[in-house]
């Protein structure tokens, strides 16, 4: 004897099943769509203004068409570079500490606070850089911008370094130690080189993210329409240029904003793909 549910119940269950699963598929499409829309739109708007002039020329005076963002590109590079000078040693060394000696309460605390740090809104980091650098110097500067970017980079670099070192098989460390190589040399000369690819792309990811930051630069580096490479003066950056040019009532400036946005997006995509590729190919499926 079999017990069967009423037929209309079965149908209702089947319908609900198909309907809800359909909704899930639909939401996947809706979520992915903005990626293509934003990328496509940026490409179509930016490509027209993207030429050699954009990279090698200075901005033209207000209202005049043409010109480029050479100073902003250099400015972004300088500040990201400065951020790296401060951020890399701190992040990498702290990451080594966490991977090698961080299995205690102190390590747990550092890991937690590093997570906290990575969650702090970037505009707040700008406020802190303003208090720490701009106020004592009493003027805006590339240096202040670099400090803000360094603070933003540190948690990412710390985390990547730790994770990539942890991915190196334990047997490698043991065989090095068994050769009478001191632990610190093992870390620096055997473990780190093995993890280099992963750490490098992780660092690139952090640098790309820093290059795309706007909020922390608004009142640290401020911005500059003229050529400057001095750390002691306000400096231009691609992102702040996008912000200014987007708000401006000139079509040509708007187009240049799109071109700069395209440069940023392209850079971010390439670096992310590289990171994905490296973590996948070296360490199998463990990456998520």
């Amino acid at each position: 004897m079999t017990i069967s549910l009423p037929l209309h119940m079965q149908r209702w269950r089947k319908f609900k099943n198909v309907f809800m699963i359909g909704l899930c598929f639909l939401s996947a499409i809706v979520v992915i769509a903005p990626l293509f829309i934003i990328f496509g739109y940026t490409l179509s708007q930016g490509i027209g203004a993207l030429n050699l002039d954009f990279f090698i020329h200075m901005p033209k005076p207000v209202g005049e068409p043409g010109g480029g963002m050479a100073n902003a590109i250099v400015g972004t590079l300088i500040m990201v570079g400065l951020g790296a000078v401060f951020g890399l040693p701190i992040g990498i060394m702290a990451g080594i500490y966490l991977a090698e000696f961080g299995k205690n309460a102190f390590g747990f605390t550092v890991r937690f606070l590093s997570d906290v740090l990575s969650g702090i809104p970037s505009i707040v980091v700008g406020v802190v850089a303003y208090i720490l650098v701009v106020m004592p110097m009493s003027h805006f500067s590339a240096f202040a911008g670099g400090v803000a970017l360094a603070i933003l980079m540190i948690p990412t670099i710390t985390r990547t370094t730790e994770e990539m070192i942890r991915l190196v098989p334990h047997t490698l460390r043991e065989s090095s130690l068994a050769l009478g190589i001191p632990s610190w040399k093992t870390t620096l000369r055997i473990i780190l080189p093995t993890a280099t690819k992963g750490i490098t792309t992780g660092i690139l990811l952090a640098l790309a993210r820093a290059a795309g930051e706007t909020a922390p630069l608004l009142f640290t580096a401020l911005g500059n329409r003229f050529w400057s490479t001095s750390l002691n003066e306000p400096i231009a950056s691609l992102t702040v240029f996008i912000y200014d040019y987007a708000k401006a009532p000139f079509d040509d400036w708007n187009r240049q904003a799109w071109a700069a946005a395209f440069v940023l997006i392209a850079m971010v995509f390439v670096v992310n793909l590289a990171f994905r590729f490296v973590t996948r190919s070296r360490y199998g499926t463990s990456h998520n």
Binding site: T171, L172, A178, L179, T194
Partner: peptide, 21 residues
């Protein structure tokens, strides 16, 4: 010093583990 000890007492492991790089 463990480093000195291990230099004098070497070890070969179960699984061959050359340095990959």
């Amino acid at each position: 010093d463990p480093v000195v000890v291990r230099r004098r007492v070497g070890m070969v492991f179960q699984k061959a583990n050359p340095f990959p790089m």
